[in-house]
């Protein structure tokens, strides 16, 4: 049997928020190590990879590996019924065709349970090799969200150009052109406000704004975001999830025709 207990169910609400714009359904692979999810969006342009380690949960038990195919719109309906401070328990039997979500209020005076049907999904899993990226940019996640939102007004694509001086985000279209440059922060009071760049080689790549904006739905999960880039390979946008692990988004670049 599978059982995972989470004292603050807001984390799972945020995770759901972070994936439901890109994915209609996904398989949650549960094992002793934790919960993992890997799925591409419908057009196979981007890929979401989620890792929630078992030791992040307040209680975790997984006797047998279990793949739960979940319709994310259905799960969203259920998670909307939970208060942010509710204690969440997810339960499923081995080989079950349903999963149960139980919400308990902090004072334990209200207990609700929701049973959800699982679906069979034949999802492709891609092997993503360990990669040494030419540029790794760390910046405040709110700043990244703001830049993606602002630039999407100017064009469908964003050019991200990273040198050791800093990182430049550019877009151009009918209105005109927009450029946002961020330099590495010299010194900041709070680590989460820092912009840092580790660069082996300068990189310039072009990406679709639409997907970058979808990735920023994860902003609530982490104060910082990490962008990893190398020439001619997908961008990795990573948000750490506290004691649990991370959510990573991979986005194939646009190339000159």
């Amino acid at each position: 049997m599978f059982e995972a207990r989470l004292v603050q169910c807001s984390m799972l609400k945020k995770v759901l928020e972070a994936i439901k714009e890109l994915l209609n359904e996904a398989t949650f692979d549960c094992s002793d190590a934790g919960i993992q999810l890997q799925a591409m969006d419908n057009s196979h342009v981007s890929l979401v990879s989620l890792n929630l380690r078992s030791d992040g949960f307040d209680k975790y038990r997984c006797d047998r590996n279990l793949s739960m195919g979940i319709n994310l719109a259905s799960m969203t309906k259920i998670m909307k019924c939970a208060g942010n401070d509710d204690v969440l328990t997810i339960k499923a039997q081995d080989n079950a065709d349903n999963v149960m979500f139980m919400f308990e209020s902090q004072n334990q005076e209200k207990v609700s349970d929701y049973d959800m049907k699982l679906i069979n999904l034949d999802q492709e899993h891609l092997g993503i090799p360990e990669t040494d990226y030419s540029c790794i940019i760390k910046m405040p996640s709110g700043e990244f969200a703001r830049i993606c939102r602002d630039l999407s007004q100017f064009g469908e694509s964003v050019v991200i150009s990273c040198t050791k001086e800093g990182v430049k985000f550019s877009a151009a279209g009918d209105v005109g052109a927009a450029n946002i440059k961020l330099a590495q922060t010299a010194n900041v009071d709070k680590e989460e406000e820092a912009v840092t760049i580790e660069m082996q080689e300068p990189v310039t790549l072009t990406f679709a704004c639409r997907y970058l904006n979808s990735f920023t739905k994860a902003t609530a999960l982490s104060p910082q975001v990490q962008l990893s880039m190398s020439a001619d390979v997908p961008l990795v946008v990573e948000y750490k999830i506290g004691d649990f692990g991370h959510i990573r988004y991979y986005l194939a670049p646009k190339i000159e025709e």
Binding site: V45, K254, I255
Partner: peptide, 14 residues
């Protein structure tokens, strides 16, 4: 113009 690449161009099926 730029052409959008597909994720499967980069990573193989596991």
């Amino acid at each position: 113009t730029n052409k959008q690449n597909n994720m499967k161009k980069y990573y193989d099926r596991r």
